[in-house]
């Protein structure tokens, strides 16, 4: 004969075993961010710098094309349909302390898409006009895409160093 204690414990376990599963549901939650950088009015936004990379002394003319990964990229924002006057000022040389490396800047622009392969050459120095196309309900509407590139001439006697310069782009609308 089982004791009352054992009977009750058996009853309790029986109730436990007959209970519905405790884990009827499992759940989890995670968040992500939504981000947007709003630019209003006429704006020029630098996407990347011009970078010729590592260039050996004595390599002569090193050309960086608009389609190269090292080309500088800028986005010009403004009102659609109205012309934007752009001027690009580039130094004649990159410098590393007192040392100089001849630089010839070049540029090209695509008025309708961020596609350097379809960009048209534009002058460096004299101003020129671009027209920003309203690209409709797509990402980055009302933008002109500007690519900066060029050529450096590296002689055999150029001292080793990091050579830099600044290209200035101005826009009016």
């Amino acid at each position: 004969m089982r004791s009352p204690v054992l009977r009750s414990a058996v009853l309790g376990l029986g109730l436990l075993a007959g209970a519905p599963p405790l884990l009827a549901q499992a759940s989890a939650t995670t968040s992500v961010s939504i981000t947007a950088d709003v630019v209003n009015g006429l704006n020029i936004v630098k996407v990347s710098d011009i970078d010729f990379g590592v260039v050996p002394a004595g390599s002569g003319a090193n050309v960086l094309l608009a389609t190269d990964a090292g080309a500088g990229r800028l986005h010009v924002f403004g009102q659609p349909g109205r012309p934007v006057t752009v001027a690009i000022a580039a130094p004649a040389a990159l410098t590393s302390g007192a040392n100089a490396l001849p630089f010839a800047g070049a540029a090209s622009v695509n008025e309708s898409a961020d596609d350097h392969a379809g960009a048209t050459p534009v002058p460096v120095g004299p101003s020129f006009t671009i027209r920003l196309r309203d690209q409709g309900p797509a990402r980055n509407g009302r933008v002109g895409y500007l690519y900066l590139h060029g050529l450096i001439t590296v002689g055999a006697t150029v001292p080793q160093g990091v050579y830099t310069g600044t290209v200035t782009v101005t826009a009016e609308q």
Partner: peptide
């Protein structure tokens, strides 16, 4: 990944 609209111009709807 986050939902990134990137650069947006005033007055222009942007769809992702």
């Amino acid at each position: 990944g986050d939902l990134v609209f990137g650069l947006v111009v005033g007055g222009a709807s942007v769809v992702v």
